[in-house]
Design a protein around this nucleic acid. Structure first.
Length: 235
DNA sequence: AATCGCTTCAACCGCGCCTAC
DNA sequence: AGTAGGCGCGGTTGAAGCGAT
């Protein structure tokens, strides 16, 4: 039932993504959006499973991903939310929309968890805050009360919308700059490494007006406007 | 310079949920 | 109602990087 089609299991590449593969996936999504990961992978010319493509996009290639060091506030948020929610990384990531759940999970497992187990989480924060504040003398230390207030504000705050993450009209995504977030790369065009649409079967028309106005994955029960942004960041 | 051990993090795996048929 | 396909989530793995010896 959960098993993938045999084609996926026998013919698909695994392991680290090459820059060329990144570029193919980005190019395809820029042109057609996200509609069916398994089919998209084939049409984009990728010998990857849909799951692999989705993971690569969500965790690495999508726009506005913040990478690099976590700030003290982010760290406090993660610790507090983990205390409240447990290992529900996607829920925690929802409050840090520029961080991926995988990033948060890794960060927790490799850095915060140790401190949280050894001491309690508050003292872990304090000790790490000292380190961070020594690195960033411009910020002041926060007390537990401040931390609690911050968390309450966070939980009460609305989830960001598209307008909170504006993209320039000339926004072009370059695989080589993925780690640094949004950039404009004049040398990169969407046509690079792209399979001609004439050669592709079109089980549906991703460029149709229907697609543009009716994004998939939107569920009535838990519709979140920020999802629109992540699904269709370029439209 | 070579080796070892530790850390980090990208990627995979398996499972469960949701939806369409 | 049952089944299949697709997606999302959390746990885990393994390669790469880096410092210590």
């Amino acid at each position: 039932m959960v098993r993938q089609p045999s084609w996926d299991r026998t013919c698909l590449k695994k392991g680290t993504w090459s820059p060329d593969e990144d570029q193919k996936l980005i190019t395809y999504i820029m042109r057609h959006g996200i509609w069916n990961w398994n089919e998209m992978a084939k049409y984009a010319g990728l010998s990857r499973s849909g799951k692999s493509c989705r993971l690569r996009w969500v965790n690495y290639l999508r726009p506005n991903i913040k990478r690099g060091n976590f700030t003290r506030e982010e760290e406090e948020t993660i610790v507090q939310l983990q205390k409240m929610l447990g290992n529900r990384w996607s829920a925690i990531a929802a409050k840090l929309p520029q961080r991926t759940d995988n990033d948060i999970k890794n960060y927790w497992n490799t850095r915060l968890k140790k401190g949280a187990v050894e001491n309690n989480s508050a003292s872990a924060i304090a000790s790490r805050s000292e380190i961070n504040s020594s690195l960033d003398a411009g910020e002041e230390n926060s007390s537990d009360a401040d931390s609690s207030m911050f968390l309450n504000n966070l939980l009460d705050s609305p989830i960001p919308t598209l307008e909170d993450f504006p993209l320039p009209a000339t926004y072009i995504f370059s695989p080589s700059d993925c780690n640094r977030g949004a950039v404009v790369d004049d040398n990169y065009t969407m046509e690079d490494n792209f399979i001609s649409s004439e050669k592709q079967p079109q089980p549906m028309s991703p460029n149709s007006q229907l697609w543009l106005h009716d994004p998939i994955y939107v569920r009535d029960s838990d519709y979140d406007p920020v999802d629109d942004f992540w699904v269709n960041p370029f439209f």
